[in-house]
């Protein structure tokens, strides 16, 4: 898909920046999300580009996580529903089976959550095994390549058969990333992936994001402004369930259009 036409149509409304040389992966149109009668997000329009990192920033409760969870239809598991459209590779996600959709759009959570009853190796291939993939030789290869991609291989190669819960928090989070990569998704959603980690582990995750964007489209929710400015190509600022401003990261952090954005970024509120 060529980006120009698509983006030009929506740029006015979405304030989405045009990213040259990248095609459109997900297009969110007029998205509003409800939990019961509470409207959590209203009229979000965002274009997400292939092999770029989109950072979503905003104060707690602004709907960042809800937005992220709309993309892989996780909200409906906890009673959320939405209006509007999310187009993923020309297809309406509501027309896709959620299980199939989530294989293509992986997710990494805030708190590392490896399965404690499985070994490190089995954690990596948990998704594949439980989807009926049983070729032992292939699985072994995937364990190694995924752990290498998640920059964890050297640390765990000798303890692959220990429980996934026996390694440090930072390692657990990279294990969760490896588990997500093993499914070979196209998009990876990250919900504050480093907020429960120490600075060294955080730095490792950020380096990893840099590597991963060569292959995957990444959307990261973060509370950490520096992190957003370091890892992302473009940034969306959410406030009270609305998309306030979205632009290239360098523009958002140096010369935002709106005062509200500037105030948040400079720490004057939120």
């Amino acid at each position: 898909m060529v980006v120009n036409e698509q983006v030009n149509i929506t740029t006015e409304k979405t304030k989405s920046p045009h990213i040259a040389g990248s095609s459109l992966k997900i297009s969110v149109k007029e998205l509003s999300v409800f939990f019961g009668k509470t409207k959590v997000l209203s009229d979000i329009n965002i274009n997400i580009f292939e092999r770029k990192v989109l950072a979503i920033i905003g104060p707690s409760g602004c709907g960042k996580s809800t937005f992220l969870r709309s993309l892989n239809r996780m909200n409906e598991e906890v009673g959320g529903n939405f209006t509007g459209k999310i187009i993923f590779d020309d297809e309406d996600i509501m027309k896709l089976d959620p299980v199939y959709l989530r294989r293509r759009i992986g997710m990494v959570f805030q708190k590392p959550n490896p399965f404690p009853t499985m070994s490190i190796a089995n954690n990596v291939v948990a998704g594949l095994r439980m989807n009926g993939f049983r070729d032992k030789k292939k699985l072994k290869e995937i364990v190694e390549t995924s752990l290498r991609q998640a920059a964890l291989w050297d640390e765990v190669k000798d303890i692959l058969h220990e429980s996934g819960a026996n390694i440090s928090g930072g390692q657990q989070q990279r294990l969760c990333i490896a588990r997500t990569i093993a499914m070979q998704p196209e998009v990876i959603l990250m919900d504050e992936p480093a907020s429960a980690l120490d600075p060294i582990s955080t730095a490792k995750i950020e380096e990893l994001i840099f590597e991963l964007k060569k292959k995957y489209t990444i959307i990261i929710v973060t509370h950490n402004m520096q992190q957003a400015s370091r890892v992302s190509d473009y940034t969306a600022f959410f406030y009270m369930g609305k998309l306030i401003e979205m632009d290239k990261t360098i523009k958002i952090f140096t010369d935002p259009e709106l005062k509200q954005t500037e105030d948040y970024i400079s720490g004057r509120f939120g």
């Binding site: 996780m74 299980v99 992986g106 959570f109 959550n113 490896p114 399965f115 948990a126 439980m130 588990r179």
Partner: peptide, 26 residues
């Protein structure tokens, strides 16, 4: 913890397999 179920869902594992192979096992 709910987080194990979510991890399973996010990996595209069908719900019944999550229940049997992750939740019951844990």
């Amino acid at each position: 913890p709910q987080s194990y179920r979510e991890a399973g869902l996010a990996l595209g594992i069908p719900k019944w397999k999550i229940t049997v192979m992750i939740v019951l096992k844990t």
